[in-house]
Computed example of a mutant assay.
Amino acid sequence: MTKTFHSQYADNPQESTGFLFAKVYNAWHAKVKSTLKNIDLTHPQFIILSSLGALELQQDLITQVNLAAFSDMDVMTVSQVLKLLLKKGLVERREHPKDSRAKVVFLTDSGREHMNQALPLVEAIDQAYFGQLREQVADFNQLLIKLEEMNG
């Protein structure tokens, strides 16, 4: 059997931006997941809680659709994560006062406590991990923003 590997990076995987990005993301994500597990949250649950907290500063009535758009997650995933957060008592869902088809989502006091416990932990991981770039962090963030805008 002939061994084949149809990649332009076969001789040097370190030249593959996607491969490098995946490796860096996986290493960062493993740290985040491990830390959040200690406070009984998954990464998607943390994203939903922190997105909800951020949105609450901007508006009073937050729908699942608003939450999905803000967190850049699909509506079905947001709905599934919210069901788990509801069971944990970290969020509440109510009927929208003006749109009977929509649900409004709120953080409970316990949800806010979990979010505020998790935020500094995740931000510390970000600072330790990405802080290794030192003065290049701002440039890195701008490049990520540019990619997000091009693909958002």
Rank of each mutant, 00 (worst) to 15 (best):
K3Q: 12
K3I: 12
F5S: 13
F5A: 08
Q8M: 14
D11Y: 07
P13E: 07
E15R: 15
E15S: 09
E15A: 11
V24A: 12
A27W: 00
A27Y: 03
A27T: 10
A27C: 11
H29L: 13
A30S: 11
A30F: 06
S34D: 09
T35R: 10
D40Y: 07
P44A: 06
P44E: 03
Q45H: 09
I47Y: 06
I48K: 07
L49M: 00
S50Q: 10
S50Y: 05
S50T: 11
S51Q: 04
L52S: 09
A54T: 07
E56P: 06
E56L: 11
Q59R: 11
D60G: 09
V65D: 13
N66T: 05
L67Q: 09
L67E: 03
M73C: 05
V78F: 02
V78C: 10
Q80L: 15
L84A: 15
L84Q: 15
L85D: 08
L85E: 01
L86I: 11
L86D: 13
K87F: 12
K88M: 12
G89R: 04
G89I: 02
V91N: 02
E92C: 09
E92Y: 13
R93I: 12
R94N: 15
E95N: 13
P97H: 10
P97N: 04
P97D: 08
K98A: 15
D99F: 13
R101L: 14
A102Q: 13
K103A: 13
V104T: 11
F106M: 02
F106G: 02
T108L: 08
S110H: 02
G111R: 03
R112S: 09
E113P: 02
H114P: 04
H114G: 05
H114T: 03
H114S: 11
H114Q: 11
Q117G: 04
P120F: 06
A124W: 07
A128P: 04
G131M: 08
G131E: 03
Q132V: 08
L133D: 01
E135W: 01
Q136T: 04
I145Q: 01
I145S: 00
I145G: 04
L147M: 05
E148N: 07
E149Q: 05
E149S: 02
M150F: 01
N151E: 04
N151H: 08
G152L: 00
G152Y: 00
